[in-house]
Design a protein around this nucleic acid. Sequence first.
DNA 1: GATGAATGAGATTTCATTCAT
DNA 2: CATGAATGAAATCTCATTCAT
Lengths: 237, 237, 237, 237
Amino acid sequence: MSSNISEKKTGAAGSQPNHKRPALVPQRSVGRERVAMLLAAASKVIEERGFDAATMAEIASRSDTKIGSLYRFFPNKEVLADALMQRFTELRDTQCDAIDARAREVSTDELADLLVNSLAEIHDEAKALVALLDARSEWSGKRIEYREKSIRRIVGTLLLRAPTLPEETAKDMAVVILNNMKTMVAMTFDKSAPTTPGSTAELRLMNRLYLASKLAGHELPAVQAGASPLGDAKGRS
Amino acid sequence: MSSNISEKKTGAAGSQPNHKRPALVPQRSVGRERVAMLLAAASKVIEERGFDAATMAEIASRSDTKIGSLYRFFPNKEVLADALMQRFTELRDTQCDAIDARAREVSTDELADLLVNSLAEIHDEAKALVALLDARSEWSGKRIEYREKSIRRIVGTLLLRAPTLPEETAKDMAVVILNNMKTMVAMTFDKSAPTTPGSTAELRLMNRLYLASKLAGHELPAVQAGASPLGDAKGRS
Amino acid sequence: MSSNISEKKTGAAGSQPNHKRPALVPQRSVGRERVAMLLAAASKVIEERGFDAATMAEIASRSDTKIGSLYRFFPNKEVLADALMQRFTELRDTQCDAIDARAREVSTDELADLLVNSLAEIHDEAKALVALLDARSEWSGKRIEYREKSIRRIVGTLLLRAPTLPEETAKDMAVVILNNMKTMVAMTFDKSAPTTPGSTAELRLMNRLYLASKLAGHELPAVQAGASPLGDAKGRS
Amino acid sequence: MSSNISEKKTGAAGSQPNHKRPALVPQRSVGRERVAMLLAAASKVIEERGFDAATMAEIASRSDTKIGSLYRFFPNKEVLADALMQRFTELRDTQCDAIDARAREVSTDELADLLVNSLAEIHDEAKALVALLDARSEWSGKRIEYREKSIRRIVGTLLLRAPTLPEETAKDMAVVILNNMKTMVAMTFDKSAPTTPGSTAELRLMNRLYLASKLAGHELPAVQAGASPLGDAKGRS
DNA sequence: GATGAATGAGATTTCATTCAT
DNA sequence: CATGAATGAAATCTCATTCAT
């Protein structure tokens, strides 16, 4: 019952299925566009319905594509999920790079905000990402990988800011911060259980308090305090 | 003039069946036991697979029950979920009561820990609860209700401790704290993405910091600072 | 946070599927053939067993189709019934047109026969039609519609023949005549309770008597009495 | 697929089923009441849903009986149907007797009305009866029997009135009249496709015309023409 | 290469009937 | 004996995936 991905039914006539074939990389621009539309649609459908309930048929029809074409590019649902994860990975890396670039300049509070907001800033995409990450059982390798890489990136950022922080501590912190990022997404985009704008401010505040507390004593000397949009971080001083 | 004498007529969507019928309350002890087993199995399966992926057949077989008996007591999957939610609700209320009873005596740090640990203390159950709460698509009313009631209970606890806290603020805080509770569950019981014990300590710390910061100035005078098992809460002092 | 990668997720009432989707219009010739076979099989099975007792599985197997293909074109049993009804509607309109075309030329007796025979002349189809019309519980809109349109058509024919007939009277007559048509079908094709050929003659006679009686004094002047195959209509004159 | 009535599943543990056992005849008055309630409920449910869609469970619950008790008295659905048919048979015989008693006294028109109304006068019951009679395929013996006996009774009535009528003709007529009786029930009680009161008058008229026409020349001499509520039967003179 | 069609395993749900307390 | 519970075959419907045109 806890079967692997390629254990399922096969449909149609005999022959050997192409289960393990990776996503087709489109050669022409028209193909690239098609793939982009497919991924966008997949993201939206998965966001709305969750990975399980998302059907290949709906993904195809929402992207004005026919089911046959969808399978040309993504030979199965898992590959599609992987492709999405990869896109998320790239988006995340871009954002992490951006954060790292500013990690030493900004105030601790700002850094906290940058981190906690980063996932939610991918907006559309983030919800689907969370849906994917939370798909229970059978985490495809890609999904575990994403999680670990994310933690590593956050660790990297933290160490950039506070080089003397023990790596183990940084990792534990990263886990917490990653969860805050997911929580921010949930709060920001959940239509069925809308949260007050105040609660996102509270989340940000908590994240600031936590980061400030943990980094105290480890921070680099030459940090110039930037203005933080939340106002001066109450609760410490 | 329709119909037929040897009607197999046993199909799913056929007539207008007991859709919408509430869960059957068992009359005999054997029935009560069966229901208990069914709920336990449901909880476990949903925890493992997620709500969508959990199948009624697996729930039945795991509780040594035939599918027909499962449907006797729970006429559909949604009602089963509702029954689970109700059990969780009762567990939660018990825990909230216990926390409220101690809310004025314990230190702020302890209160923070009580809150953040409470969900995870229901262990077995909690994972399924989270799976249920996070099931995408139509949140049955019960699910939304649970969330709101939980928030109200946390608000109640906060106001018990800090009566002068503005209610709106308390509600925003409750949302954040509730998410911390869910995060704690995820960290504690997720086998596929195990987190270091350190990370739960970090989560607890963050939660303490946050609560202490928010309650500062609102707290009742006569709180005796109990020793907190985490050690002195670094980062405040 | 629900879901799972290897979602069998193929259940019936699971997500929010193409319930309510209309019948799929086949694009290719092979599809059109398949749909034709499906409708024919459906008609036959419903005729034999009645609507409730007819199973989608039997309809599929009788048309050498797999159940999945049946559901591709007809997303549920109701839609299949609707499609049949539409075909019947078309057949009926064709026949009504033909009758109307001759309504002024033929004798009253002939007109009566034309009407009462018309349904039974569709043969194969008619039995299934009657089964559908008589299916208890929720008459899909289509079914009520059929009935009303049929009555309207008969009214039209009557008024063509006897323009001075009060419309309300015509409508009441139409109800009776429609029932005679259904009775004729039942008599003609019911294998389980075969009726003597004599009884259909009697039904025809009754229908003639009735029509002649009601139209007397309202008929158009220039009707040429055609010979009626039943012989001279005994009982009037 | 066209299995007999006792070909179905068995449920529970092994042992030999009591399929062919007839309905239990209750010995005590409480039992007789119980049976009466069960039959009444069965009649109502079958009327509403049709025989196929009627479930034993609903029949039990509507008669404030438990499913186990229902099965004590009626060991299966077929037996229940048979019992209903028997009640209908008795009702019919009572009515036929009453009609026969007056058959020679009343006018032809009145006789026609007596016949065509008789079924509908059992109102509550009649709808269920029709539902039973129209259950397609697998007519239990009882059902065929009912039909034939009804025809024989009508033949009897006709011959009482017109002894010189050839028996074959009488039988053909009886088929037609029986159908008129069923039509009257349909018109009178069908809520989903209500017919104007006018149409039942038309049906009665048609039935009168027919009977008068067929009996002409065969009738007994000493019939006193009773006033017919429908007015003078136009169309004959 | 695009796409409509085919496939079939499997999920949910129903219900007649039997049994055990 | 009354009745709650158990059973399991069967019906409806879904959807990932493959093929043929």
